[in-house]
Design a protein around this nucleic acid. Structure first.
Length: 624
RNA sequence: GCGCCUGUAGCUCAACUGGCAGAGCGUCGGGCUUCGAACCCGAAGGUUGCAGGUUCGAAUCCUGCCGGGCGUGCCA
């Protein structure tokens, strides 16, 4: 495999500067100067530039036009004509110009992890594109990557959804004929939301009553008047005690009238939940049948979304598959003194041996009724993944609020030396202007809703001739771009105006540049030959080739930092450079040599955009 | 209380491991008889939350404050 011109260039810079100052990686400190289309070696500033006599001795390669001292820094100007020629050569001999050297590493990336029986919303969407980006960029760097999904198909939220659905009379979902854009996860999520709102409503009501009379109960020695209500709300032990007293009829006074009423109300809801939990525990055939049916609805809905987003999982794990292992592993940890029993529950106390960490606090693994918590299940899943794939790096794409939890989990897993390196990629939440999204309260933007609205908008902006396929490419391009437009650790405040916009720094801008390349090449009737014949380039041609040239570096940075920003920003600079070039320099031209050269430039731009956009899961349409 | 994230132009965000603070939106002005105007050009807009420290040089590193968000034992 021949080398990308950027890699040759940086090697040349290293060799050249090593003659003046041996033993340093000079190219590593190259900084782009966009205005002057040059590079500055920041190391050279540190050692105060170079003597003119030294600079004269330097043997320059053909890619380097001049090396000068400027403000004590070393300025390197590339030779644009040579640059263009080497880019053309490289692009003509490689099918994929950004495929990096093969790597022996094996990674597993766990992402998406939606819960069945709940709507797939924009938060899940951000997760999917984040994980997909990691998978795609790692593959670009020759790494063997296993994309894995972990579906939350059991747990209290599932039972709550089933309960809500049962109470509504187990309605049948609408057919595709009735609702062509049907999203069954969203449809079923409504029943979850209905129940959750009812239950939390009666709970909140009770807690409010309990707070107002709590000092009459003699149970509140830990809670001075003025103590935060929030803290009181979190004290589940105290609250359940008050509930019990109240529903047992032990509180007779007039003062407790409202409290008793709200207690009975909430208790009714709790009983319904306990009842369905009991049925689940006893594997009630009717319930299991319903569960399987509704789970399938949701999985089908997820599959539909994954197809739309062009993501593909090599392995799908279900929470229900690791439940038994989770119990087994928890008990094993107890035997190895890595966890302890406390009543029926099992927990890890990180203050104790062998963890000795004051900061990690305590992590429960099994509930007091013996059922495994998410933590135990994650431990089981980690073991399962490692046994199956024997990776050297394991990524968890999970929301940033869980970073503390993953520190705890990783600490436990690190006790086993066989495991691979564990990395939590935490991305920040997408929230609505009104506040945090919550499927419990129904305050969400479902992905299907987002997609329908965005598609409608795209269609309104598109030419009449646009195909269905291209319409989808533009729509997903816009939506994915929005998710990548901020770094992972920045929250996205969701705004419809931002979705329904196609101007400026958007996915459409990048696609538009690429589409113009396609169309102008097509219109010219010229087959790009990638032969360099022109000798003199204008400013916009230089800027364009400069930006094509430096993409390789930005791609590497994006990979090293696992961050979409460097690459995405550079694609905007490239598209901008192309737009300038397109306006100032007629591609279809009377001068045949000039025309050929510019067609080649457009072709290289197109190839660069197509291949790098693919890393973000974005495709280039042929029309938009 | 403790821990993590965050603060850059009116708004949303960049700034390549310390090296000339830049984009998009919005505002104002200009450009379609010309390869697709989802575009391009020009202008205005900054004490990088505050105060110290390290350095030839700090948005970036260190310390202390202030503001915002999140997490902190049986939900995931």
């Amino acid at each position: 495999m021949n080398k990308h011109p950027w890699d040759i260039f940086t090697m040349n810079v290293n060799d050249m500067l090593s003659e003046i100052k041996p033993g340093e990686k000079h190219a590593a400190s190259l900084r782009r100067e966009d205005k002057s289309l040059t590079f500055v070696c920041t190391n050279s500033i540190r050692w105060g530039g170079s003597k003119e006599s030294d600079l004269k001795k330097i043997r320059k390669t053909k890619l380097i036009k001049s090396v000068t001292n400027e403000n004590k820094s070393l300025k390197i100007e590339p030779n644009y004509e040579e640059l263009a020629e080497s880019i053309f050569n490289f692009y003509s001999t490689n099918k994929n110009v950004f495929d990096q050297e093969r790597d022996e590493q094996k990674w597993i990336v766990e992402y998406s992890q939606p819960n069945t029986h709940k709507a797939f919303h924009i938060g899940h969407f951000r997760n999917v594109v984040t994980g997909d980006f990691i998978v795609r960029i790692a593959r670009k760097f020759g790494i063997n990557v296993i994309p894995a999904n972990y579906i939350g198909d059991i747990g209290t939220h599932v039972l709550k959804a089933l309960l809500g659905w049962e109470l509504a009379g187990k309605p049948k979902p609408p057919t595709l004929e009735q609702e062509p854009n049907l999203d069954l996860s969203r449809w079923l999520g409504e029943y979850y939301s209905q129940w959750a709102q009812r239950e939390s409503g009666s709970r909140e009501n009770f807690i409010k009553e309990a707070w107002s009379v709590k000092d009459l109960l003699n149970q509140d020695s830990d809670f001075e008047i003025g103590e935060k209500f929030k803290k009181f709300k979190k004290n589940k032990f105290l609250i359940s005690k008050i509930l019990k007293k109240s529903t047992d009829g032990r509180l007779h006074s007039e003062n407790f009238k409202n409290l008793n009423k709200s207690a009975i109300n909430w208790k009714k809801d709790l009983d319904l939940q306990n009842e369905i939990a009991e049925r689940w525990k006893n594997k009630d055939p009717e319930l299991v049948k319903d569960w399987k049916k509704t789970k399938k609805w949701c999985m089908d809905a997820f599959e539909k979304i994954y197809r739309l987003l062009d993501v593909d999982f090599e392995k799908i794990y279900y929470e229900s598959d690791v439940e038994e292992d989770a119990i087994r592993i928890s008990n094993k940890l107890v035997n190895k003194n890595l966890a302890e029993k406390e009543g029926g529950s099992v927990l890890v106390d990180f203050k104790k041996e062998p963890y000795n960490s004051n900061k990690l606090d305590v992590l429960p693994l099994l509930r007091s009724d013996g059922l495994p918590l998410y933590s135990a299940k994650d431990l089981a899943l980690a073991e399962l993944k490692q046994n199956q794939y024997k990776t050297n790096k394991s990524f968890y794409v999970v929301g940033a609020p869980q970073s503390f939890y993953f520190k705890q989990i990783f600490k436990i897993l690190e006790q086993d030396k066989k495991l691979s390196e564990l990395i939590h990629i935490g991305y920040e939440m997408v929230d609505l202007p009104e506040g945090k999204m919550s499927s419990r309260s129904g305050n969400i933007v479902a992905f299907s809703e987002l997609w329908e609205e965005a598609k409608k908008f795209t269609k309104s902006k598109s030419s009449q001739k646009i195909s269905k396929k291209d319409l989808e490419k533009v729509t997903t391009g816009a939506l994915k771009h929005l998710m990548f437009s901020r770094d992972f650790n920045k929250r996205i405040s969701f705004k419809w105006e931002e979705v329904l916009s196609n101007e400026g720094k958007t996915g459409s801008y990048l696609q538009y540049a690429a589409v113009r390349c396609k169309r102008v090449i097509e219109k010219s009737g010229i087959q790009p030959n990638l032969k360099f014949e022109k000798t003199k380039m204008n400013k916009d041609e230089k800027t364009l080739i400069f930006n094509i040239f430096t993409i390789q570096n930005e791609l590497k940075r994006s990979f090293e930092t696992i961050s979409p920003t460097p690459l995405l920003e550079s694609l905007h600079r490239l598209s901008k450079a192309f737009s300038n070039f397109y306006h100032s320099s007629p591609i279809i031209n009377k001068d045949p040599e000039l025309e050929k050269f510019r067609i080649n430039l457009a072709y290289c731009t197109l190839k660069t955009l197509e291949e790098t956009l693919k890393i973000f899961g974005i495709s280039v349409p042929s029309r938009m």
